[in-house]
Each structure stands twice: as C-alpha cells, then as structure tokens.
Amino acid sequence: MWGTLPENVGTFQDLDGLMEFITVVVGLWFLAAMAMIIGFSLMFKAKPGVKAQYIAGNTGKQVGVLLGIVAAITMFDFMIDIRNVPLWNTIKMQIPAEGDQVGVLAKQWTWVFTHKTKAGNVTTEMFNDAGEYSDSANGAPKLHVRTGTKTIYSLNSEDVLHSFKINALRVTMDIIPGRTYKGWFEAVKPGTYDLACAEICGRGHGDMAGRLVVHTPDDYDKWVKAKGVTKADSAPKGVVVAHNAAH
C-alpha cells in the first residue's frame, strides 16, 4: 500500500493485510475501468465518414456483458468481506478474559488514564494539581502498557462524544457519555506512539493529544514500582505531569 501505513506495532497485523488486499482488488478494477474509459474515448473519436453503431444495450448479450462485469466485482467484494468478518469479530467482540486493566476517561480536551497495577491504581493526566492545562507534546498524558500481555481498556466520557484512537495499534473506538465501552489490544514493539481523539468534541479537540508508552515487561514493573509506591491507589490524581503555559 505505497508503504505509507504507519508501522503496526500491535497484534492486529491482519488488518494491514486486509487493507492491502482491498487496495489490490479495488486498484485492479479501477485500472480496468479507466482503461475502458480512455480506450473507448480514443478508439471511438469522431472520424469523418464513420457513423456510430446503434448499440442500445437492450439485447440479452449486451446486457449480459454489463451484468457480468458487475457480478465479477460483487464476487470480489464478497471475498473481501469473508476476510473481514472474522477480523472484526476477534477485535470488537471477543474481549479476552484476563489482561492488564486500563481505565480511559475522556473529558473535554484531555485524557485521564488509570492503570490497575499490583501497586494499586496509577492515574496519569494532563492537568496538574493546580488544575492548569497544557497541550505541548511532553505534557500529553501517557498510557503505559507492556508487551506480551493483552491490555483491556474501558472507555468512559464525562461530557461529549470522544474517540479513542491509536494509529500504531489500529485501534479506534468512540466513547459515548453514559456508557462504558470495553476493548482490547496487545502491543508488541516497545516505544512511544501517538494517541488522539478522533470524534469532534469542541474547541479543544485539537489539543487532546495523548501518548501510548509501550514498555518491556520488566521496564513496566520498574515504572509501576516507581509510580506505584509514591502514589497510593486511593489518591485520585496520580503522576504529576509537567505542564506548560495555559493554552
């Protein structure tokens, strides 16, 4: 796919395969149709003395050509869907029984991530204790996960629609206020990846940046020990995130 999809660091690798398969199928049909358009336009340019042929597409054979092309396209589309349904079911329907629990709370223009760890709940968010608001890259709240175990996230919103989107993991799920949505992913490659709100949620929709930090398992335990000990689970505000001038 022109090599432009960002690297997929999660376990949903088949999604990339599906998208490339669609592009190949659809690209073939596009080239065929364009070849017909350009070909017919050039082949049948008006030449003096040559009359047009009276083809009104009302005979069985002519209509057969048209319906044949469309039947072939539809057959390819159903092949795409046959690959699509199992993927969709595993991602959206089969939520694994055990895995790291993460609570994602979206509110008008920030994220609050609550990690359920051995040392209790660790919350990371963008507002610091003074309630000031920051939007710069390093101020973005971070969601900490580890490789090798599935992460089960539950999505809540305080006010309006938001959407939990991590491009690197191919994860997108809208968050509806009043409902708690559950989803899962499993990260494979350690690193820091972008996390964004994909549903318009007002003036600060462009400031709702977040980061997904993928640790190796022991690195994750170090993080939990460092954060877990100092911030007991009862404290509502966990890691103090450095902040910049208010927006």
């Binding site: 959206k92 329907m93 939520i95 629990q101 609570g103 609550t114 359920k116 709940n121 539950s154 809540n156 509806i176 009043g178 409902r179 708690t180 949505y181 559950k182 989803g183």
Partner: peptide
C-alpha cells in the same frame, strides 16, 4: 456485547 451502561451494570475497571 462490548459495552454496559450505568454503575449497576458494570463496575469501572
């Protein structure tokens, strides 16, 4: 299937 509504149906986390 993958969502629940008020506190009664699903405890946070």
């Amino acid at each position: 299937i993958n969502w629940c509504r008020g506190a009664a149906d699903c405890v946070q986390l």
